[in-house]
Write a protein that binds this DNA or RNA. Structure first.
Length: 208
DNA sequence: GTGTGGATTATCT
DNA sequence: GATAATCCACACC
């Protein structure tokens, strides 16, 4: 019998522009395995695309390159984890081709595995849907910090990886809502571009 | 060397 | 809605 283990997404899945990858990631699973063997995971329900060099809201606008953002330049399927607001981490997936610094921010998950492990990491979450309903909430719940920056998300043995659950029902385009990105207010024409994607009506998205 | 401002969240009113 | 919490990267002396 085949196991119930999700199968990792192949490198080629990530080798497309961020605005094409972002909606395609909806419905796939982010899995986090710690050295102690604990596993936490959730289904992606909200993403945002950051298009790199031309995108005034991207960390790599105008080709900006530094150790912090190096993972955005890495081969597709690499984790870009950054630290912001003095206390929060956010996790992205590098997209497009190596050297083209595009990425997709994972903004919300539906928690599916290891909820008992997540709860003590998220004491403010009064309901389970609050465990991972935001980009910094999900990194807390899954214990994702900067030491996972650069992780290969396609490798089955990685501490952080992306997978497609067996028998996952396909996401119909009509179920995907599109709108402007959250928290972007000084990127001129890039403020309003429809680069945020979420599952319409899902209770775990960061904002309706 | 100093100053500024976040791809956010929790906790108030 | 407003604001504090709190670090780092970067711009600009």
């Amino acid at each position: 019998m085949p196991t119930a283990a999700p199968r990792s997404l192949p490198r080629a899945f990530f080798a497309r522009p961020a605005d094409a990858l972002a909606p395609a990631l909806l419905g796939h699973t982010l899995l986090r395995t710690k050295p102690d063997g604990s596993t936490t995971a959730g289904v992606i329900v909200e993403t945002e695309a950051y298009l790199g060099t031309p995108d005034k809201a991207a960390h790599t606008y105008a080709g900006h390159r530094s150790p912090r953002v190096e993972s955005m330049y890495a081969r597709p399927g690499t984790a870009y984890v950054y630290f912001t607001y003095g206390m929060h981490h956010c996790v992205n997936v590098s997209a497009a081709a190596q050297g083209d610094p595009q990425a997709v921010l994972i903004r919300a998950l539906q928690p599916t595995l290891g909820l008992d492990t997540m709860r003590p990491r998220r004491p403010a979450a009064r309901r389970d849907r609050d465990l991972t309903s935001g980009p910094a909430k999900l990194t807390q719940a899954l214990a994702i910090t900067r030491d996972l920056d650069g992780t290969d998300l396609t490798a089955p043995a990685s501490p952080l990886r992306l997978a497609s659950p067996p028998q996952s029902p396909p996401i119909a385009p009509a179920d995907v809502a599109v709108g402007p990105r959250i928290g972007i207010d000084r990127a001129e024409e890039w403020v309003h571009k429809p680069l945020r994607f979420w599952l319409r009506g899902h209770p775990c998205v960061s904002r309706p």
